[in-house]
Design a protein around this nucleic acid. Structure first.
Ligand SMILES: [Mn+2]
Ligand SMILES: [Mn+2]
Ligand SMILES: [Mn+2]
Ligand SMILES: [Mn+2]
Lengths: 230, 230
DNA sequence: TATAAAAGTTAGATTAGTCTAACAATTTTT
DNA sequence: AAAAATTGTTAGACTAATCTAACTTTTATA
């Protein structure tokens, strides 16, 4: 059985090498920063994960997941996102509250529990932040998506996901932006990226700090399967 | 924030000094046995819990809970029993499966979560094994109850709770005994305590190993409030 | 290509929780 | 009340996860 710590390393590795997907491998410093520990700590731990055949790694080299490591990490993310969905849809938590609680729930190991929960929730495809939920085989839909910061002036798009950070989520609530909403880029200031968007009957001026954390697809694509460029 | 380990010590102390209630205090050996660790380990840990003002304790003396320790321990039990109820009533787990999973879920700390869960379950009074669920103030109903082994021959009683142990629960399923069921003591062998009971249309011969783990009240009393002797 | 910068490793320390083995205090029995 | 049994404590060791500080390797740059 993996410890909390080991599970968190695998989860971070999936996020860095599968979701962010600049590359399938990652350095010690990057992983350390992501887990908020020192590189020395990661150096040690990665050796342990290698002994357990959860990562590929050679001294001074890059870290990547084995297929077992990837599966185990994906299961942590599956649990995290299913619990977030449960908290949101059954216990009426708001989307900015669920992450913190799911950080604990994701480490409850019972496989039967998570599959029953999945069924109880009617096999949801996405969590409250629009992130796809891996299935019990560890497979996940990775829709091609852009950030709102990348959409050209004049174009329209639909929000399909948001980075799961309390400040982002609360800010979006405040200006009444939400998932599935149609947004049009009315104007973008070259100087600082300040963007004027229209959504619903409103118009807001937002900074890249927000737009870089909002993921969109072009308006005409279906939420689940969009593969076009916005 | 308390660690898993500290929470398990407090939970065990509540079980020994509140529920079993031979006495409000307990020795190092007894607690060690209950937690499946060595007395040396408990000696150390109890000093730590004393520093945190969770227990009363003097070297070579007995251990007892402070009111803060009692409250914190009671909250662990509240979480345990609410999750067991959730697993049983919402996710269709059988009563012998829920304990193991609740041992992990009970350490998820969010107070808001547990109060929302309580509401979602419609404020249940008892868990699937008939044990009362402490309220958010740490108060709990401790109904006077006997074990089935103590009921006299010829008398009838109703099962209100069962010790939460997989083997006991599975055995009861097998002979079709369950909570709220009416049972009559038809005969008891002096020699070895083997007891013949009638329940429903059946009759079974059961040993003290079973009857000592089944809690009952007299038939006419209400489940929740019985204070009479069977 | 030599040097500087960045990235990564190692050694040694710390904390939590556990153990065994030896010892000490308390309680029970004779 | 002395001896025996039980109960509890301490010392020393171990593992997991972390840190800092010093050192080494790799990469980038002048
Ligand atoms: Mn999250
Ligand atoms: Mn999420
Ligand atoms: Mn239980
Ligand atoms: Mn129970």
């Amino acid at each position: 059985m993996l410890s909390f710590t080991e599970e968190n390393y695998l989860k971070a590795l999936v996020e860095l090498t599968v979701f962010e997907a600049e590359s399938e491998e990652v350095g010690v410093n990057r992983l350390a920063h992501c887990l908020d520990v020192k590189p020395a700590t990661v150096s040690d731990m990665v050796r342990k994960l290698k002994d357990k055949e959860l990562v590929h790694y050679e001294k001074y080299g890059k870290i990547s997941l084995t297929s077992e490591g990837r599966f185990k990490g994906m299961m942590v993310i599956r649990r995290h996102r299913l619990w977030e969905t449960f908290l949101s849809s059954k216990l009426d938590f708001s989307w900015d509250e669920v992450h913190e609680i799911a950080e604990e729930l994701e480490h409850v190991h019972s496989e039967k529990l998570i599959n029953r929960l999945d069924e109880f929730l009617d096999f949801p495809e996405f969590d409250p932040h629009g992130d796809a939920i891996p299935n019990k085989l560890g497979e996940i839909l990775l829709p091609s998506r852009k950030t709102l910061a990348e959409v050209e002036v004049g174009k329209s798009c639909r929000i399909i996901a948001v980075r799961d950070q309390v400040e982002v989520l609360q800010y979006m609530d405040r200006i009444e932006l939400c998932i599935n909403q149609e947004v049009t880029i009315a104007h973008r200031e070259e100087f600082d990226g300040l963007t004027t968007i229209t959504h619903g009957n409103q118009s807001s001026v937002v900074s890249p700090k927000l737009t870089e954390n909002i993921f969109v697809v072009c308006s005409v694509c279906s939420k689940a399967k969009c593969t076009c460029d916005v």
